[in-house]
Amino acid sequence: MDLSIVLQFFISGVNLGCIYAALGLGFFIIYSVTRVLNLAQGEFVMLGGMLTVTFYSMGVPILLSTLVAVVIAGLLGGVLYRGVIHPARNLSKATQTFLTVGFAFAIEGIALLIWGWEYRSLPNFLGTPNIHLGGATIIGQTPWVTGITLLVVTGLFFFFGHTIQGKALRACADNPLGAKTIGISVERMSLYAFILAGTLGGIAGAIITPLTMVSYSIGFPMTIKGLLAAFVGGITRAEGVILGGMVLGMAEAIAASLIPSGYHSIFALIILMAVFLCQPRGLLSSPGKT
């Protein structure tokens, strides 16, 4: 095989992997604290992208637009918890999960009203040019996606390992009853988890928009992509989600270069099924440790 294809395969794999991981992390945080699958996670991604485009087109610098968009997405995460999940906290986790679907439909409808059906795009952040490397090409936005994803992941590990709030969140994830006993407010921690997940979704949306474009309807597909990453790697651990994302990204890249085109998407999904059959809780799945 041509060297340029191998190189391109690697670049694409890492890029897709980072996108998957960024989408999946939000599920991990909410699930580990509240045991609810937030099926509105993709809507935060959509909002992150849409709001960044909106502010950017109003003349706000790109990084500032991203920041404002991410903050709004985070606040909406809080709204989802306060307005929907918290009032239903005594219902089963299944019902709470479906309530997030309702929230997702609502956000999608409002987004259609505000922005219409058109797709929008952003230029590469700070106009980063494409890098040509031995026959392969790194699209200008790719380093941003990889870099920011790495930064977010490092930040998360620091937050969970070295801050009191992070440790409290981990305690809730490990053992909610125990956490309550030692005086941690599980409700407050759940709120933090939703805000954090909204923020992460917003960041993911803003950084992938230059690569993928954004419209009101991308939320649900993004939810599914994030779920895939979370399930392959194991939804109970951050490392699992990142590993899962990378595996999926690489699988999709392998598929695109080796499998007859037309079957690409299935290939990644078949990997997922294979992982399930051998390791039903995901690749990294020792429970109880975050």
């Binding site: 609810v36 699958l37 299944a94 599914i224 939804i235 399930f276």
Partner: peptide, 9 residues
């Protein structure tokens, strides 16, 4: 709840 996610996929 994981079952629901997997079946969704």
């Amino acid at each position: 709840i994981i079952v629901s996610g997997v079946t969704l996929v």
